[in-house]
């Protein structure tokens, strides 16, 4: 697609003090106390500013945010089906390309942002997301990951961790660990299969300035970009509402979550702890893991250990995945 239209250039934020005080995801939404995805929405909105169009596939951030014919979005926002956010965003972007080219819209290309949950991004929404990434639309796809279908009552998603007690993977006599499968690696699916994508990152609510800058970087890149954001969910993971940031931090300290950027083939890692805390400490904070035995936790630790072999170390070519065990 011709990319002649003028795009925006968003400045890097240096500190919390420089984060805009203006809210574009305004207060007045029905999300749970201490909601990680809501905080994610707020931070992303601060990063994008008002010259943006958001697409919200069905999920918590649709249902809880827009209940009863009201919405907290100060910019244009449109609901999409859980299945088709990437496609609707593609249509919006294509429309703006042609409208700007024909002089029917006078401004710069708006920031086009999809806020997809884990299901709407890499499970039922995978095809549309991949289509948008493949076709090179100038849009940012954000996957806010609360590791379950939370809106419908915490059912397992491909992002639910091994051992999670969800309402579709209850632990029982025959299946003592609850969820037996290990999660998909969403950013690697995008990086590995979409040559039009030049920027992919992961971010955590524990590091909001980093998150905001990654969003801005993603938007400044011309073409499709993808950011995977770890969003602890007090209701679904079963921890107290004031622990959202603590859980997010512990995820990084234990290696459950790795913050990194991928720019045209180059990885850089952020917030890598000097020494990793055992994953058991992370799992202890959440009731969803409370049924697990030492044997299960050891299995989880082995999964993390394999995943952590790459970050921060020079990676021999052609291995480019941080999940690749060397």
């Amino acid at each position: 697609m011709a990319k002649a239209v003028e795009t925006q250039n968003l400045e890097r934020v240096k500190s919390v003090r420089r984060v805009p005080q203006e809210e574009y995801y305004v207060p007045g939404h029905r999300t749970c106390q201490g909601c990680g995805p809501a905080l994610c929405y707020k931070l992303v909105s601060k990063a994008t500013g008002p010259d943006s169009i958001f697409l919200g596939p069905t999920g918590c951030m649709y249902v809880a945010n827009t209940s009863y014919l009201c919405s907290p979005f100060a910019y244009p926002w449109m609901h999409t089906q859980i299945t088709n956010a990437g496609a609707v965003a593609s249509g919006v972007e294509a429309a703006y390309q042609v409208l700007i080219r024909k002089g029917k819209y006078k401004g710069k290309l708006p920031n086009i942002v999809v806020m997809g949950g884990d299901g709407g991004s890499i499970d039922i929404g995978l095809q549309a997301m991949s289509g948008m990434m493949y076709r090179g639309h100038d849009a940012l796809f954000i996957m806010y990951d609360n590791e379950s279908y939370a809106n419908t009552g915490i059912q397992t998603s491909p992002m639910s961790p091994y051992g999670a007690n969800t309402t579709f993977t209850p632990p029982g006599k025959a299946i003592p660990e609850g969820k037996v499968l290990f999660p998909k690696d969403a950013p690697q699916m995008v990086i590995g299969g979409h040559p039009a994508v030049k920027y992919v990152a992961t971010a955590s609510l524990a590091y909001p300035v980093d998150l905001i800058n990654k969003v801005r970087k993603g938007l400044n890149v011309v073409g499709p970009t993808f950011i995977h954001i770890h969003c602890p969910c007090p209701k679904g993971w079963l921890f107290d509402a004031d622990k959202t940031i603590e859980v997010a931090k512990l995820a990084i300290e234990t290696g459950m979550w790795v913050n990194y950027e991928w720019e045209e083939g180059e990885y850089t890692y952020q917030h890598t702890p000097k020494e990793y805390t055992p994953v058991k400490e992370y799992m202890k904070t959440q009731e969803r893991f409370s049924h697990l035995t030492d044997e299960h936790i050891a299995k989880m630790q082995a999964f993390i250990d394999a995943k952590l072999k790459a970050p921060g170390k020079p990676v021999p070519l052609p291995v480019t995945s941080p999940r690749e065990s060397v």
Partner: peptide, 19 residues
């Protein structure tokens, strides 16, 4: 489009954006 489901989504997304 990557399928008809996406085709219609792209089309109504574009219509929503004014094209």
């Amino acid at each position: 489009g990557e399928g008809e489901h996406a085709q219609v989504a792209i089309a109504y997304g574009a219509a929503a954006a004014g094209a």
